[in-house]
Structures are given as C-alpha cells and as structure tokens.
Amino acid sequence: MYENILLAVDLGHKEAEQRAIDTVVEYARAFGATIHVLNVVPDFGMALVGGFFPEGFEKRALARAHEELNAFVAAVIPAEIPHRTIVGHGGIYREILHWAQETKADLVVMSAHRPELEDYLLGPNAARVVRHARTSVLVVRPAPA
C-alpha cells in the first residue's frame, strides 16, 4: 500500500516526535516501505534579516542540521528499515510538499505538537500540508495527557 513514506520532523521538539516515529516504523514494517526523514531549516525570508547574522551562518546551520538529523535517525529508526535523511531549507510547509514530490511519497506523516490557542485545530504548517498535498497526510497527535 505504501512504498515511500515522508516523515517530517522538528529537531527542536524531538521528544514530541516519538509517537509519529513509532507510527512510521510500524507502517514501514507492515508495507515494506522506505522512510524519508525530513527536517527543514527555515530560511531568513528577507535579505534584510540575513544581514543580522554572521557570514556563513546558514551554511553552518545546514551542516549542523544534517549532523543532528543523522544522529537522531540512527537512534530512533531501526537499521533494518530502509531510510534516508533529508535536510530542506526554506519555508517549512513548502519544503515538505516539495520533498513529498521528490521522494514520490505516497504518505506524508508529521506530528501535531501541543497546540497553542491560536492554532488549536491544527498547526499552520500541518494545516497547509494537509490542504495542498497531492498525497495522503497523517497528522499524529501527542498521546492524551
């Protein structure tokens, strides 16, 4: 049923990703799917904003994200499950949609972190991915408290 699953993770909230990771691992085992684990490093948005950071900051941030994502995935995805890591750079929901197409994902999985009042139904990035994705999207909520 699923061959390629894109798992979008936020390395700033690793502990909140565990339920989505468990779900994706079970799906991959059940369907023999490959997991593509994506983390997105946001861009500055405007050149003016980038001027406030030291030269080479984005390049170092991307390198650090690759290292951190590889270490994270090695710790949480069993070695026998086919997987790869991807670090995107830009707008979060746009990068998720881009990589869903690039990886030919037939399922996108992402966590819904504990909502703030203003995005109580679904976070803004998750809502945009659900609205615009050309494939199925599974939003995994945290376990009830």
Rank of each mutant, 00 (worst) to 15 (best):
residue 78 P to M: 01
residue 102 E to N: 05
residue 7 L to H: 03
residue 53 F to R: 01
residue 109 V to F: 10
residue 30 A to P: 02
residue 4 N to Q: 13
residue 102 E to L: 15
residue 83 H to L: 00
residue 26 E to A: 14
residue 69 L to E: 00
residue 72 F to K: 00
residue 56 G to A: 10
residue 41 V to F: 05
residue 53 F to D: 01
residue 98 H to E: 12
residue 102 E to Y: 07
residue 91 G to M: 12
residue 115 P to N: 02
residue 86 I to P: 05
residue 101 Q to T: 13
residue 42 P to K: 02
residue 86 I to F: 02
residue 143 A to I: 08
residue 54 P to C: 04
residue 80 E to M: 10
residue 69 L to C: 06
residue 145 A to G: 15
residue 134 R to Q: 12
residue 43 D to I: 03
residue 138 L to I: 04
residue 9 V to A: 05
residue 48 L to E: 14
residue 124 P to G: 13
residue 15 E to H: 02
residue 23 T to N: 03
residue 20 A to G: 06
residue 47 A to N: 12
residue 2 Y to L: 12
residue 2 Y to W: 04
residue 15 E to Y: 09
residue 24 V to G: 00
residue 130 V to I: 05
residue 82 P to G: 05
residue 116 E to I: 14
residue 97 L to D: 06
residue 31 F to Y: 14
residue 11 L to W: 07
residue 16 A to T: 13
residue 102 E to A: 14
residue 121 L to H: 13
residue 107 L to Y: 08
residue 107 L to C: 06
residue 103 T to F: 02
residue 64 R to E: 10
residue 74 A to L: 09
residue 100 A to C: 03
residue 25 V to F: 00
residue 65 A to H: 07
residue 113 H to T: 07
residue 97 L to P: 06
residue 37 V to F: 09
residue 144 P to G: 10
residue 112 A to I: 11
residue 27 Y to G: 04
residue 47 A to G: 08
residue 20 A to F: 05
residue 80 E to H: 11
residue 98 H to W: 09
residue 43 D to T: 07
residue 8 A to D: 01
residue 85 T to G: 01
residue 81 I to H: 07
residue 55 E to L: 04
residue 94 R to H: 11
residue 142 P to L: 10
residue 118 E to G: 13
residue 37 V to G: 00
residue 51 G to N: 13
residue 6 L to V: 08
residue 35 I to P: 09
